[in-house]
């Protein structure tokens, strides 16, 4: 039976309602407080470190995002770690809570399609994350301007905005994943546990597992081992495996965008460096081309995860 009208009728209403729910939710407030507090600490440490060590640098603002300040990781590294947490927090009970509160059938009794409901919840989550990221970005740029006293140039602003967009895509992957789990599992606790489990798996286990698997799939060449060198094939395999993790994709894309002198993300052969002028900044377009596969990976997996959730949701039976 064909439906009448747009599939996204009522989308705006859902988005606004969800957004207002999330903004007033204690859970989101605590999560955002945590992330913003860590971001402030990280930026403060970065500024102190830059004031101590950095000489003239054409990309001083970008260094705020990338400089390591032990014991904490850099600002970008911190985001890579924390964004999944917030996104899971936003999405793990998106649909199951409606089921459990028995409000789903009431909502769907309104002239709102399931499409619009799911899309609205997703977009509202993205908007919340986007607002959080934008606030943090403004915080960093403002603190940089205030504490370092160096006005950022156009390229820096553009690159940091691209970084913001990449972070948003990364949010999308985890949000779509969390929503998929909230559709599949009726129990919010199960969904949350599985989501956090996957997150921990990608953060802590997958990097070392990828290296072990690469050794098995593409064993190191004896000739390289005798010379104490890594085998190119093994390294490439390890990198390919590691890139199944969205965290890895995010980290690589951020590296290419925020460190303008990054010329490649894979292993580099010595012959490729012959005659190269080191340390020169690439134009933004070239940096984007380097990071593009990673960005595409993030966007495409967001869509695929969302579609999977959509298909499952459409086939579910909703009873009052």
């Amino acid at each position: 039976m064909r439906r009448e009208g747009s599939a996204f009728q009522g989308l705006g209403t859902v988005v606004l309602k969800e957004l207002s729910d999330q903004m007033s939710s204690i859970r989101i407030f605590v999560l955002e407080l945590l992330v913003v507090a860590l971001a402030v600490v990280s930026v403060a440490l970065a500024i102190r470190q830059l004031g101590l060590t950095t000489a003239e640098d054409p990309f001083l603002l970008l260094r705020l995002f990338t400089v390591d300040n032990p014991p904490l990781p850099s600002f970008a590294g911190m985001l890579g770690f924390l964004i999944p947490l917030v996104a899971i927090g936003l999405g793990f009970d998106a649909i199951s809570s409606e089921h459990n509160r028995r409000t789903l059938s009431r909502v769907l009794a309104q002239p709102i399609y399931r499409d619009a409901l799911l899309m609205g919840k997703f977009l509202a989550g993205m908007a919340t994350l986007g607002i959080m990221l934008l606030a943090m970005w403004l915080l960093v740029v403002g603190a940089g301007l205030f504490m370092l006293g160096v006005p950022p140039n156009g390229d820096e602003i553009l690159r940091s905005l691209v970084f913001l967009l990449i972070a948003l895509c990364y949010c999308g992957v985890w949000l779509a994943f969390a929503m998929l789990l909230s559709i599949v599992f009726r129990s919010a606790a199960t969904a949350a546990l599985i989501a956090l489990g996957v997150w921990l798996f990608f953060v802590f286990i997958w990097p070392s597992l990828a290296s072990v698997l690469a050794q098995v799939i593409s064993p190191p060449d004896v000739r390289y081992v005798l010379l104490g060198l890594p085998t190119p094939g093994t390294i490439e395999m390890q990198q390919t495996l590691a890139r199944f993790s969205p965290n890895q994709l995010f980290a690589e894309a951020v590296l290419a965008i925020l460190s303008p002198s990054t010329r490649a993300l894979g292993p580099i052969y010595l012959e490729q460096l012959q005659g190269a002028v080191m340390g020169t900044a690439l134009p933004l377009q070239q940096s984007l081309l380097i990071a593009w596969p990673q960005i595409v990976g993030l966007i495409a997996s967001t869509i695929v995860l969302f579609v999977a959730g959509y298909v499952v949701f459409q086939r579910q039976e909703v009873r009052a």
């Binding site: 439906r3 984007l288 595409v296 695929v304």
Partner: peptide
């Protein structure tokens, strides 16, 4: 060229979404 290929991949993902909406959309 690879950049365009990436755009193609995203477009394909979107197409799948549209297809899913058409196929599974219900009243």
């Amino acid at each position: 060229v690879w950049g365009i290929a990436g755009v193609g991949i995203i477009a394909a993902a979107l197409l799948i979404m549209v297809g899913a909406v058409v196929r599974f959309g219900r009243r």
